Amino acid sequence: MSPEREEVQRRLFSAYKTFLKRDRVLLELDVNERSLTHKLAEYLQAEFTDWDVDCEYNRNGDIPKRLQVQTTVTDDTDAHTVFPDIIVHHRNTKKNLVVIEAKKTSSTRAVADTEKLKAFIAEYGYQFAFAVVFPVGPHASDANPSTDITEVMV
């Protein structure tokens, strides 16, 4: 049985608080986004012990899991393949619980994470989707799960 919305959010916030307690220095140093999502995923695995937690997972059973999204912010009209930053799921099944897209406050990515998250919900049936914005550099001291994590719904 899948956890309810409040339980999922509680676990995500708990993992983020652990990340801040143990690894805030990564935010201060403005390290690569993949380093940040990897550490957050480690703490999520401790919260979702009956689930698999993966970064940039690209499988849907035995076929690649990917979205074809089009940018709308720039003049680029080509589709780009994207993978979710972090997912909580059961591998080799269609049980997809949480999808997370993350970015740093210093990011200039053109494709809106909200649109990607909505597409992951629609195409792969994720029950919950969250955008995480990591405050980096001088803003690292402002990190807080209630302001850095936003649920996205279709």
Rank of each mutant, 00 (worst) to 15 (best):
Q9R: 03
E33F: 06
T37Q: 07
W51H: 02
A79W: 14
G125Q: 00
V136R: 09
E6D: 13
T37H: 03
D30Y: 06
D30F: 10
S141N: 09
R11S: 09
M153G: 15
R59A: 01
T108E: 13
V154P: 14
I149T: 09
I86H: 09
H38P: 02
S146G: 04
A140D: 12
N96D: 06
Y57V: 00
L44P: 00
D85E: 08
K118C: 03
F83I: 05
G125F: 03
D148R: 01
D75S: 14
L67Y: 01
E33N: 10
V132R: 14
N32E: 08
V31A: 02
E123W: 06
V73F: 13
L117H: 00
F48I: 02
E56I: 00
E56P: 06
V69S: 07
P145R: 07
E151T: 10
P145L: 07
N58K: 09
T114P: 00
I87L: 08
K116L: 00
S35T: 15
A112Y: 15
N32C: 08
A46Y: 01
T18S: 08
R34I: 14
A112F: 15
F134P: 05
R10H: 12
D148T: 03
H80P: 04
V31P: 00
F48K: 03
V99A: 11
L117K: 00
D78T: 15
E28C: 01
F128S: 06
R91V: 05
I86Q: 07
A112E: 11
A131V: 14
T72P: 08
V25D: 11
Y124F: 13
Q45S: 02
L29G: 07
I100V: 08
Y57T: 02
R59E: 03
A79I: 15
K65W: 06
D62W: 15
V132F: 08
D113E: 02
P64W: 09
E101I: 00
T147C: 06
N58V: 06
A122W: 08
N92F: 03
H90W: 11
E4W: 11
D85Y: 05
E123Q: 11
F19D: 00
N58D: 04
